[in-house]
Nucleic acid binder design. Structure first.
Length: 278
DNA sequence: CGGCCAACCTGTGCGC
DNA sequence: TGCGCACAGGTTGGCC
């Protein structure tokens, strides 16, 4: 599920329920996800007020009034569900690893089948120096991401462009799906070496990456509806992809009669059209 | 340091 | 029905 647009959607969905709201009780039921959940997890969150929610790359940051920052990552299979006060009390399922109840009586559950996600702590003073945060590249939707920075990141790289765009140090938040989509749109073969991507292609990649992500965020936003009113699972939304997951199907690019193929690169599937992606 | 792979986990779907 | 394998939207430690 979670690349930048999905994480952004989750963060936006949590805002009306958590921002400015005090947590009554928090409880972690699993000792560890990808890394151990802090021993003092329950105590640090319980009776603490969330001042702000932010997203950085694929991380959601929860800043508390006492300076605590909870860093959350959804991994491959993480999701959040909101159960509004007054509705039926939810039953905790097998993979609901964290349960939070707010002062308003709303209940938020963190569910993660594969446990590749994480919840760890930092604080407002050192969050930007945190090991998980400090080396992350520019946000693709912000001004810090531009032709020059992408050019600089690619010109000395020998790895395939697919691997480069998945590298969070080069640009934040892209994952397997949106890299496939951006490369398909710009006509760049995923196996092309980074240092062989031309200036023109770099100038096309920047707005294409922005557009692919923005459109996905819009799609997510339109499914959010009002989670302040309704129970719901956050971050899931139907989105149609042009290349990802379409192996064997016709290429949808105008005037292209090719077929989408799949190859494996760095242990991940790449979907592309060898007719229009070179 | 750059680049690549295996590993972390659980579940599902497919071929035999 | 069962078994084994491939695969799933992320990240990183260790190896060359």
């Amino acid at each position: 599920m979670p690349e930048l647009p999905e994480v952004e959607t989750v963060m936006r969905g949590l805002k009306p329920v958590l921002e400015g709201v005090k947590i009554k009780t928090a409880r972690a039921y699993a000792p560890k996800l990808r890394v151990p959940i802090p021993d003092d997890f329950d105590q640090r969150l319980s009776d603490n007020r969330i001042e702000r929610l932010d997203r950085r790359s694929k991380y959601v940051l929860m800043t508390f009034e006492d300076g605590l920052v909870a860093i959350m990552h959804l991994g491959m299979s993480g999701r959040m569900t909101i159960h509004k006060s007054g509705n039926d009390v939810p039953v905790r399922g097998k993979h609901d690893h964290i349960v939070i109840e707010t002062e308003r009586g709303d209940i938020i559950m963190y569910n993660d089948t594969r446990r590749f996600g994480m919840w760890v702590f930092s604080d407002t003073k050192s969050i930007n120096d945190h090991a998980l945060i400090k080396d992350i590249g520019p946000e693709p939707l912000g001004n810090a991401f531009h032709d020059g920075i992408l050019q600089a990141g690619l010109e000395n790289r020998k790895s395939p462009i697919k691997a480069a765009l998945l590298d969070q140090k080069l640009v934040a938040g892209l994952g397997n799906i949106y890299v496939c989509e951006a490369l398909w749109r710009t006509g760049i073969h995923p196996a092309r070496l980074s240092n062989a991507v031309t200036q023109d292609e770099i100038e096309a990649l920047v707005p294409t990456i922005r557009d692919v992500l923005s459109k996905a965020i819009e799609a997510g936003g339109s499914t959010l509806k009002d989670y302040a009113q309704v129970d719901g699972e956050l971050g899931y939304f139907q989105h149609s992809f042009k290349a990802y997951g379409r192996e064997g199907e016709a290429c949808l690019k105008e005037d292209c009669d090719g077929t989408i193929e799949r190859i494996v690169q760095s242990n991940r599937s790449s979907f592309f059209c060898s007719t229009c992606q070179r």
